[in-house]
């Protein structure tokens, strides 16, 4: 399925890490893994980001694409994402970011669809992308990018890694974001049950531990 693409610069606005949509306070599970000693070096971050993109990245990408295309009712899509997120802490983090994204979206591209109860971040991303006049595939690529850009920036802050090294990883993974988004588009005509459900159990467990810490730097 192809839809006329929206403004590329608008896509850059939506995908910008400085978008005030709550992302800076989340590490996408990285803080828990750093503290567990599993992630120390650039190569570990590389593996983490690849894993993220192939699992949560594909799911987020498919749900953002569907949220933008409106192939399903938003409530149904939101519920389908909810049941794909076993960790209560991650459900909470995703909803908080969906809420923040709607807040930012309402300021940028006012649309009735953005005045609604909060939904999970990828679904919200799809709805906001539609309000911005973007195409589903653009929403999908923004979602894929979001799943790796957030933890990459957290890695720079938590591990003091060379920011050029981390951005080199991101540049290498950028074509993979396109590939994931293309794959996500193949789910557009599928039923809710057939949308991707890839996950990473260790991240779910890590997120639940993380939520109990007394001192943490990131919200998730």
């Amino acid at each position: 399925m192809t839809t006329a693409a929206g403004s590329l610069a608008t896509l850059l606005v939506l995908a910008d890490g400085r978008l005030p949509a709550g992302g800076h306070a989340h590490s996408s599970g990285l803080e828990a893994q750093v503290s567990a000693g599993r992630i120390r070096h650039l190569a570990d971050v590389d593996a983490f980001l690849r894993g993220r993109l192939a699992t949560g990245g594909l799911v987020a990408s498919a749900f953002a694409g569907a949220g933008c295309a409106r192939t399903h009712a938003i409530e149904d899509l939101d519920f389908a994402f909810e049941v794909r997120t076993p960790s209560p802490a991650l459900r909470h983090a995703s909803r908080a970011q969906g809420k923040a994204l709607f807040r930012a979206g309402r300021a940028m591209w006012p649309a009735p669809a953005l005045h609604r109860p909060d939904v999970h971040q990828p679904v919200a991303l799809g709805v906001v992308a539609a309000a911005a006049g973007l195409a589903p595939e653009q929403a999908a690529v923004a979602a894929a990018w979001h799943t790796i850009s957030g933890p990459a920036s957290a890695a720079v802050r938590l591990l003091g890694l060379d920011p050029y090294g981390v951005h080199a990883l991101l540049a290498r993974l950028a074509p993979d974001c396109d590939t994931i988004a293309t794959k996500a588009m193949t789910y557009l005509e599928k039923s809710l049950d057939d949308l991707p459900a890839d996950g990473a159990p260790l991240l779910d467990i890590g997120a639940e531990h993380h939520a109990t810490w007394e001192v943490r730097l990131f919200a998730s």
Partner: peptide, 21 residues
């Protein structure tokens, strides 16, 4: 309490969403 992801100034200036919430 609001978590700031190692960037206390971001949470009060550049991305105030969690504080507004």
């Amino acid at each position: 309490a609001v978590e700031t992801g190692c960037c206390p100034h971001t949470a009060i200036r550049d991305d105030i969403s969690a504080n507004l919430d």
